[in-house]
Design a protein around this nucleic acid. Sequence first.
DNA 1: CTATTGTTCAACCCATAGGTTGAATATAGC
DNA 2: GCTATATTCAACCTATGGGTTGAACAATAG
Lengths: 116, 116
Amino acid sequence: MDTFDQTLAALADPTRRAIVQRLGGGEIRVTDLAKPYAMSLNAVSKHIRVLENARLVRRRRAGREHFLSLDPQPIEAIGVWIAEQKAVWAARLQSLDALLQAEDADAINHGKTGHD
Amino acid sequence: MDTFDQTLAALADPTRRAIVQRLGGGEIRVTDLAKPYAMSLNAVSKHIRVLENARLVRRRRAGREHFLSLDPQPIEAIGVWIAEQKAVWAARLQSLDALLQAEDADAINHGKTGHD
DNA sequence: CTATTGTTCAACCCATAGGTTGAATATAGC
DNA sequence: GCTATATTCAACCTATGGGTTGAACAATAG
């Protein structure tokens, strides 16, 4: 699994998206981060691990406390991918449009409109 | 799993992303779509099913042939989510900035710069 | 030194994902 | 009607994901 795959897979889980959203507001300790969730601290710890592997989250150790922060880069990479896809769709629609116009021109040359 | 989760999970698989990309170029038959992949037709069929459940792909039946097309909406929904996250980050950076400026002003009032 | 707090590691459980193969179904062509 | 083509359905296998609990480890507090 490459990093891009990992980013998408990581974000596919609602708990992890909530964590990402929370970290968008700034650094936070593991325990504090875990507090709102109905699952064990261990489970949250595992989610954090997944986010770290996807490079979405960085960890700063200060004594026994671990502070987590967001790395927005992988999310932006997804944004880029989406933009690329949109470009593909746009290109296709444009060429469809060109095709229709060419047909219209052709129809006019043959003395009919192609429309009803 | 809500639709948003499904969209991200669907796109987390490289085969499925390739399919999405291919469909960006227009409609295609299941068999033709499956041709390039090193896996069985059945496996591709399953991927298609996942994409349909995520509402990323629509199916048009013409006799025994099934033509697939892309529905860009769920992908755009992810784009929106990403834009929202960016807004959060931007807001935070802005308030950090305001904080620093306030500190500077305070420092000036006390006759020092805070810089070196 | 000991107790407490913050966090991970390890083992386990169960559900799901991604692949396989083989059979079933639906349509088309002759 | 028979055969071939397009596609799914069903059963199975193995690996992985998300959760649990209990123990370990690290650092602070008293």
